[in-house]
Amino acid sequence: MGPHLDGIEEAAIDAAGATEKVRGRLRVNVDPFFSRLVLARELASFLDQHPDLRLELIMRDHIGDLVADAFDMALRFGEPPVAGFTNRKMLETRILTVASPAYLEKHGKPGHPRDLINHTCIDYQDPTTGRAFEWEFRRGSEIFPIRQSARLMVSDVETMIGACREGAGIAQIMELGSQHIMESGKLVEIFPDWPDETFPLYAIFPSRRHRAAKVRVFTDFCSGLLGRAD
């Protein structure tokens, strides 16, 4: 289905629920990093707006089975499942390759992604495969994949950032939520001339049927937060 038809269907699904009252239980499978970074500090205002709604945010590192686990929707980074779901792209955030000033002073700053073969990197585990995410650099139409050399792999973003900040190696992090640490100078972007590698955030829904008002308003609420955080 083409993007135009997807947009028409999305509007039709949302319009079908536009007159419903926002109430009952809303159960959301949510990426832990997104929940801590964006949602946590804004939840009180959302709940104040919808006093008849009970919100259940269940932090998981994978999407699992939304239907069997009784989720109304999910908020996940990465490409969404192809079959059995519909989705809405919420954000594309840049991927930054970073290191601490102390690491760069000790080991030197790589001039090109190919130079990473001579550096220590920090891997982040893909919860779907259990393997490390592959590193890829993009600049316009130019794509440069590398096989990084890592002695440390983690499955938690804050642990990765903390280890990188203390000089354990070079890491790739999302620009979303990293502004404060970059502006403080505790981490330095290494390849600003390779700016086009991104990672998406999707709202994922278990079916294409009529979408409840509670799902629609929460999705729009998150979209508004991302507009301010981006």
Rank of each mutant, 00 (worst) to 15 (best):
A203Y: 05
I170G: 03
V188T: 14
E175A: 13
M160E: 05
G185A: 13
M174W: 00
W135P: 02
S178L: 00
F205A: 05
S184W: 00
E166L: 15
E197H: 11
E197M: 14
S184H: 02
G140F: 06
S178M: 12
L201M: 14
S155R: 10
E197P: 00
Q148C: 03
K186W: 08
E166D: 11
E158G: 02
D196Y: 11
E142A: 11
L152V: 10
S178D: 01
E189N: 13
S141T: 13
F191S: 03
I143G: 00
F199L: 08
V157E: 03
H180C: 01
P192Q: 05
A163H: 09
S178W: 00
E197N: 07
I146W: 06
E134T: 14
R138H: 12
S149R: 11
E142M: 10
M174I: 03
I190E: 02
E175S: 10
V188Q: 07
L152M: 13
V154P: 06
M174Y: 05
V154D: 04
S184R: 07
G167T: 11
F144Q: 14
A150Q: 11
G140C: 12
S178Y: 00
S149N: 13
K186A: 14
E134W: 09
I173L: 02
T198D: 00
R139D: 15
S184M: 02
M153F: 07
F137L: 12
S178N: 04
L187P: 09
Q148G: 05
V154L: 15
S141I: 15
E189K: 06
I146T: 10
R139H: 15
M160P: 00
F191G: 03
R138N: 06
F144I: 12
E158Y: 08
V157D: 06
P195G: 10
D193W: 07
T159S: 13
G167C: 08
K186I: 10
F205G: 01
I173T: 02
E197R: 09
I170N: 02
Y202S: 01
F144G: 01
Y202W: 11
I204W: 09
R139S: 15
S141Y: 14
T159F: 04
G167F: 13
E197V: 04
D156E: 14
E134K: 09
V154G: 03
S155V: 03
P200G: 01
R147D: 15
I181V: 15
A203Q: 06
I204R: 07
F205L: 10
D156T: 04
E158W: 06
R165K: 09
L176D: 01
M174H: 04
A150F: 15
P200F: 12
F137A: 10
P195A: 08
A150L: 06
A163R: 09
E166C: 05
F191V: 12
P145V: 13
R165D: 06
D156R: 09
G177D: 04
L176I: 14
E158L: 08
E189F: 08
T198F: 07
Q172A: 14
